[in-house]
């Protein structure tokens, strides 16, 4: 089946992140979930949005004073179907859905040093 864009491994990771999440994600959360730089994630989000697979909206609940609004992304019904089809086709199965409180935790930036310290 043809897709409107090329499916790379990062594209699949992003699709899996959305399928595994039970709520909307913003760009930084997506980058964290797929462990890729934010700069690689945004062009993919833009392509998904252009293809009608993702919908996005500005943050509106409890925005802090003076803080820029975040933009949240969510799979559309069509996007969910396509994402499931592609992920099953390429990865052989769907990712397990994570509840909101078990979303990827922020890792320490110098995590390798922490692990190295624990190993000693």
């Amino acid at each position: 089946m043809r897709t409107p864009f090329r499916i790379t491994s990062t594209t699949l990771d992003v699709l899996e992140a959305f399928l595994a999440s039970s709520e909307e994600l913003h760009g930084f959360a997506v980058a964290k979930a797929v462990s890729k730089p934010t700069g690689s994630v945004y062009p993919i989000l833009s392509r998904f949005e252009e293809a009608g697979w993702l919908s996005s909206r500005w943050e509106d609940e409890n925005p802090q004073e003076g803080r820029p609004r975040r933009r949240f992304y969510e799979l559309t019904p069509n996007g969910t179907e396509e994402a499931k089809r592609i992920v099953i086709e390429r990865r052989g199965g769907l990712p397990s859905a994570k509840p909101a409180d078990q979303r990827p935790q922020t890792r320490p930036s110098l995590g390798f040093m922490v692990r190295w310290g624990m190993a000693r």
Binding site: P37, T38, R67, P68
Partner: peptide
């Protein structure tokens, strides 16, 4: 759109130098 969206990312990113690295990453790759 993207200026506001990306500025919001800086608030999410801890650390001062890491904010700059994030911005440079976006400028170079996104």
């Amino acid at each position: 759109r993207y200026e506001e969206e990306w500025l919001a990312l800086l608030e999410e990113r801890p650390g001062k130098l890491l904010k700059l690295i994030l911005a440079i990453n976006i400028l170079l790759f996104a």
